[in-house]
Design a protein around this nucleic acid. Sequence first.
DNA 1: ATCGTGTGCTACATTTTATGTAGCGTAATG
DNA 2: CATTACGCTACATAAAATGTAGCACACGAT
Lengths: 108, 108
Amino acid sequence: MSQAIKPGRVRGSRTGRPIMALLDLLGRRWSLRILWELRAGALTSRALRTACDDASPTVLQTRLDELRGAGFLQLGDDGYGLTPLGRELLENFLPLHRFADRWRKQMD
Amino acid sequence: MSQAIKPGRVRGSRTGRPIMALLDLLGRRWSLRILWELRAGALTSRALRTACDDASPTVLQTRLDELRGAGFLQLGDDGYGLTPLGRELLENFLPLHRFADRWRKQMD
DNA sequence: ATCGTGTGCTACATTTTATGTAGCGTAATG
DNA sequence: CATTACGCTACATAAAATGTAGCACACGAT
């Protein structure tokens, strides 16, 4: 399977700084979206797929593996859910919701 | 050129919610990284390229256009820099630096 | 005036990723 | 059993990123 993403082992950076590993992982398609869609609670893989506008199962599965390998997600009885670490990460993004609305107003 | 990304016009979502447009844009390769590298001040396109581990100029240019079209970047005499809106967006990500360090510790 | 240098940006062939559709094996429920 | 939903995979097609080269333009120095 795909190599687990850890703070030291990254594609998008030669420095190995953890922040680069993080930005690389989060900058892959559907990564942010997945975390976002799980903000209210766990979802089954298929519910998650629906929530993500029917993204192809191939990438979705890849991202889920990566995010799981990074320790942000876990697979439980109720499907995929955020780990404590994953929730902590998501907290950094929740303000984006408000920002996005301000963004729209500014673009009109 | 590539179509400007606005809160209503998105690839990754059918709903048109601004947050989806934002997650889509930020989820494209190098988007987050670009914003991150500009946190300390403007950079010329070539300095930015170097800062981004020599990412190919093709994508970089595409991302710059998109981020500029979204109103997060501007091109001035000293190169590419964050707009006030872009800086506001970046503020949401600055805590990630600390988080990434905690992440590493937890992965050992 | 031209040579060198740095800028923003583009072309294009190759490689890497994502999409879309179908379907697998398993487990729980009727 | 038959159904249903689960997590997950195969694979052909389409889209996006990479890497290398180079363009047109502006500036400053020799």
